[in-house]
C-alpha cells in the first residue's frame, strides 16, 4: 500500500494528475501503453503528474480491489472524478478526453 501514501502526499496540489497504470509484465500492449502514456504526459502534463505503473502479475490482489479486467488499464485518481481507461493508449484523442485534459491545440 505504498502507492497510497504517494497519492495522499500529492493531493495537496490540486492540479496534480495522480494516475495508476496497470500492466502485465512486458506484453506488447503493456509496453505500448507505457510509452504512449508517457509521451502524452510529457507533452500535456509535464511536471504535474504522478504515474505509478503496477504489474498485476506481481500484485494480483490489487486487481480485485481495483476491478481490473481489461489490461492495460489506466486509472486517473485525481483531479476530479476517477476515470478508467483501457487499451494501449494509442488513441491519443480518447486518452486526453478520458483524462479531461483540455488541449486547445488539438
Amino acid at each position: 500500500m505504498a502507492e497510497k501514501k504517494g497519492v495522499s502526499g500529492l493531493k495537496k496540489r490540486k492540479d496534480i494528475y495522480v494516475m495508476r497504470l496497470f500492466v502485465t509484465g512486458a506484453s506488447p500492449n503493456s509496453a505500448r501503453a507505457i510509452s504512449n502514456l508517457k509521451k502524452i504526459c510529457e507533452e500535456y502534463l509535464k511536471d504535474r503528474y504522478e504515474l505509478e505503473i503496477i504489474d498485476v502479475y506481481q500484485q494480483p490482489a490489487i486487481a480485485i480491489d481495483e476491478q481490473v479486467i481489461a489490461l492495460p488499464m489506466l486509472i486517473k485518481k485525481s483531479p476530479g472524478m476517477e476515470r478508467k481507461l483501457i487499451g494501449d493508449m494509442s488513441d491519443k484523442l480518447k486518452v486526453l478526453k478520458g483524462l479531461e485534459i483540455n488541449a486547445v491545440n488539438l
Binding site: F22, T24, S27, N29, R32, A33, N36, V56, Y57, P60, A61, A63, I64, Q67, V68, I69, A70, L71, P72, M73, L74, R83, K84, L85, I86, G87, D88, M89, S90, D91, K94, V95, K97, G98
Partner: peptide, 25 residues
Amino acid sequence: VHVSRSEIRETGEYDLDGLFIRLGY
C-alpha cells in the same frame, strides 16, 4: 467483477489479462 461501459474508455488494443490474473489468483 464489475464492468461498466460508462466508466471505461477504450483507447486502443487491450486484452483481458486482468480477468485471467484475478481468476488464476
